Deep mutational scan, measured.
Amino acid sequence: LTVEVTLDGRRIELHGLSEEAHEILRHALERNADDKEIKKILEELRK
């Protein structure tokens, strides 16, 4: 799955996400998580 997010003013596409990762990010974006929170989530998903 692919998600497009804006971090530090740049639009980035995240490819190859699992369903779980996609859901976690989608929920964070829906509640307008800040860049710091999104980065933390991405860091966790990379593990």
Rank of each mutant, 00 (worst) to 15 (best):
E30C: 14
L7G: 02
D8T: 03
D8Q: 07
E13Y: 15
V5I: 15
T6A: 04
A33T: 05
L7H: 03
E19S: 11
T6P: 02
E44A: 14
A28F: 06
R26S: 08
K47Q: 12
E44L: 14
T6W: 14
L25G: 00
G16V: 05
I38N: 00
H22R: 11
E23P: 01
E19D: 10
E30V: 08
L45N: 02
I24Q: 09
L1F: 15
H15Q: 08
L29R: 04
I41N: 00
D34I: 05
K36I: 12
H15K: 11
H27D: 09
S18A: 04
H15R: 11
E30W: 08
H27M: 15
E13T: 15
N32V: 06
S18F: 02
K40N: 08
G16R: 05
E20S: 10
R26Q: 08
K47M: 15
R10W: 09
R31W: 05
A33M: 06
I12K: 02
R11H: 07
D35A: 09
D35W: 11
D35H: 08
V5W: 01
E4W: 13
L29C: 04
R10F: 14
L45G: 01
L42S: 00
N32G: 12
E13K: 13
R10L: 13
K40V: 09
I41V: 05
N32I: 05
E44F: 15
N32Q: 11
G16K: 04
K47F: 15
E23N: 13
I12D: 01
K39H: 11
E43W: 13
E19M: 13
D8K: 05
I12W: 11
D8A: 08
N32C: 09
E37F: 07
I41F: 04
D34W: 05
L14A: 03
L14K: 01
V3W: 07
L17F: 06
G16W: 10
I24G: 03
K36C: 08
E13D: 07
E44T: 14
E13R: 14
L14S: 01
K36E: 14
E30R: 13
D8N: 13
L45S: 02
L42R: 00
R26K: 09
H22D: 05
V3P: 03
L42Q: 00
R10V: 15
E43S: 12
S18W: 04
N32T: 05
E4C: 15
H27Q: 13
I24P: 01
E23K: 14
D35I: 09
K39N: 07
E13W: 14
D8H: 08
K47R: 13
T2D: 04
E4H: 10
L1T: 06
E19N: 11
E20I: 10
H15N: 08
G9L: 02
D8L: 03
K39W: 15
I41S: 00
R26E: 04
L29N: 02
H27A: 14
E30H: 09
E4P: 02
V3A: 07
L25C: 02
E30P: 00
E19R: 11
K39G: 08
V5L: 11
K39Q: 10
L14N: 01
T2W: 11
I24L: 14
L7K: 02
E19H: 12
H15Y: 14
T2V: 10
H27L: 15
R46S: 10
G9S: 03
K47G: 10
R46I: 14
L42W: 05
L1C: 04
E37R: 03
T6K: 04
L14H: 01
G16H: 10
H27W: 09
E23F: 11
R11N: 06
K36S: 14
K40F: 11
I12Y: 13
E13P: 03
A21W: 14
E37Y: 07
K47W: 15
L17A: 01
K40Q: 12
L25P: 00
K40S: 12
R31G: 06
T2Y: 08
T2S: 12
I12G: 01
V5C: 05
L14T: 03
L29A: 03
E43H: 13
A28E: 01
